[in-house]
Write a protein that binds this DNA or RNA. Structure first.
Lengths: 189, 189
DNA sequence: CGGGCCTTTGACTGGTTTCAACTTCTGTGG
DNA sequence: CCACAGAAGTTGAAACCAGTCAAAGGCCCG
């Protein structure tokens, strides 16, 4: 849980009291590989901070295939902000890709926490700012590069990460078929 | 300027004093068609609220072509969050598509304003949450649908908006060439 | 009125998908 | 601990979506 406190401290100042307040408001949870934090049509009730591990956020597309739109790893928050805020059924699944440990911040508790530590609004604003900028960057890559280029770019950026996940998940995230990824890899070795 | 106050009031409670504080901190500005709020390599210094009009955010890709990654219209904020926060040269241009009116919130003034009205941190957090969710949704559409399907989806969603912008901008935003858009349109009329 | 920008149209090209068959890996129960 | 079934990865051929290039026509704005 100290990892979360450390992460928040990188963005805002926390007193010792703040730290204790935060710790009293979040729940530690172990999540086994393939377990779900959220399923389609459920209403998302929490923000999840990944202490250790890896999650994927995906939906089932019109062809009945899983389409991954996001990965979360150590020190990232993951949730469906749309469902969480508007209380609507989610379009997404959030599933553990490997055995993981998370900190759960329930929606109601979050609101209480915000009133106790207003600085946290700032923390989440900054987190979202980063996430939004990263998302724009991602759209930029999708438009600018071919599938093959995106693959090489991604494997240069996160060489250790592509070892952790099956190829079909990486293909889905990058926006092409597992067959195509296989062909790319067979080319240049 | 009342449009901005009205917008903020939809998300958080404002006292009469808050309203005056906000109004004293933002600057009204008219922007002519084709004028820039931000250019590539400049450091972004403000958040811009569009009172009336339309802006496009784009970059020059490796082939030397303009690639639009975002449109902003009435009642939307627009800025380069990455450049603004990290004080790095921007990759983007933000340009008026039509004669527009904006409210400018300078970065420094914004920080002062946050200390005077902490509730604004919440407002911007909520705005960003929406923007981020919309951005995820956009990635979803890019992956799920063909160019033609995205075009029909977009024109059903924003029938009045596609009248306001030239076709080549719409094509760029949707991620294909103007020629391709022209071919789609010639099919089904 | 004219020049340049925007749009249209057609032929050709290429990146990626689809489908199907085959091989390799993995995890679970006996 | 091994066997086996299902999941994941590979390969090739055919089809398709969209890009590129080039040329012509329309239209806006100075």
């Amino acid at each position: 849980m100290q990892r979360l406190i450390a992460h928040i401290s990188k963005f805002i100042e926390l007193t010792e009291e703040d730290r204790e307040t935060i710790l009293s408001c979040i729940q530690y949870q172990e999540v086994k590989k393939k377990d779900y934090l959220l399923r389609q049509d459920a209403i998302c009730n929490a923000n999840y901070f990944i202490l250790k591990g890896c999650f994927r956020q995906y939906y089932i597309n019109e062809k009945g295939l899983e389409q991954i739109i996001h990965f979360g790893i150590d020190n990232w928050w993951i949730t469906d902000y749309d469902s969480l805020e508007r209380r609507t059924p989610s379009e997404y699944y959030i599933q553990a890709v490997e055995n993981s440990e998370i900190a759960v911040l329930d929606k109601r508790v979050k609101e209480e926490l915000f009133s106790k530590i207003p600085g946290l609004e700032r923390y989440f604003r900054l987190i979202l700012q980063r996430a939004y900028a990263a998302s724009m960057q991602r759209i930029k890559y999708i438009y600018e590069f071919t599938g093959e280029e995106r693959y090489y770019h991604f494997s240069n950026l996160f060489p250790e990460f592509i070892q952790r996940i099956p190829q079909y998940m990486l293909a889905s995230y990058l926006g092409f078929t597992p067959e195509f990824l296989s062909k790319i890899r067979s080319k240049k070795i």
